[in-house]
Amino acid sequence: MGKKFLCAAALLLVLVSSSFAADWPTKTINIYVTHAAGGDTDYMARQLGAQLEKILGVSVVLSNVTGSNGATCMQQYRNGAKDGYTFIATNTAALNGNEATGMVDFGYNAFEPVAVYGIQSGENIVVKASSPYKTLQDLINASKEKPGTIRLGISMGGGVYIMACVLMNIGKAQFNIIEAGDAANRLTALLGDAIDATSIPYSSAADYIEKGELRSLCTVLSKSPTLLPGQPAASDVIPELKLDTEYALLAPKGTPPEIVKAMNDAVMKACATPEWKKIVNDFSWQDPFYFDVEGSIANLKAQRDLFMSLVPILEIE
């Protein structure tokens, strides 16, 4: 009796969820963006939302729920409605970085990953153009010669912090580590000679590099953006130094796999259009970059494995 009932219930559940998926979507889809309007994560999510509206035929509403490098939003919606109309748009550096640095105690496994749908133009390690350092190796060697004199500006807890830990502990560099705040503050500090080197997004550094005020030593992406080829990568000097920020769409844990698949199909369709190629070419100097569900999970896992392998050197108690 009990077994029969369970079977019936299971069958019903399957029926309900499949019929659920068959005519999905029927109403407005909500996407919660983990970072503020005006940033790259928000821009990419909104562009994707606009494309999805065309493909799925329902409206896609994006709301920013910000704070703590995206942790607030992820904390709030990881157990959100599993009806297939709730999604979270974030970036992988925040998702995996927050777990590695101990800001939160959950990772991508706490969600149903839908798709990785883009990659950032990345950060570059930069110095003043008047300084003698031409490569990352020069900078590291110089810091070993005169320990504690070269000031490296970082901000705690984020990708830049992971970078500094790798440079110091694996690269054996001997920098004087200075807390200099977010990317804009680090740029101010570098221009105002309060630090000697730091890592800032290529997009903020580009003008200064062109004008000959700053020099880029390398990108911290695993490889140069497609439209900015030929830059040395930090991983050529230290293999572990790879900070790829990719854009990811997640669903709350327990969202039916059919819906996740259907959403992923829509994302892949959106990313394959020439319109999308123009958007990402213009905005992040990258070519379209996207995966199916399995590929996205594998991608997230690879970055998480790398970050988690660094936890011992992050010295976070």
Partner: peptide, 10 residues
Amino acid sequence: IRVFKSLGAT
């Protein structure tokens, strides 16, 4: 409050 003691601590 947890004190931050590692790299770059003030």
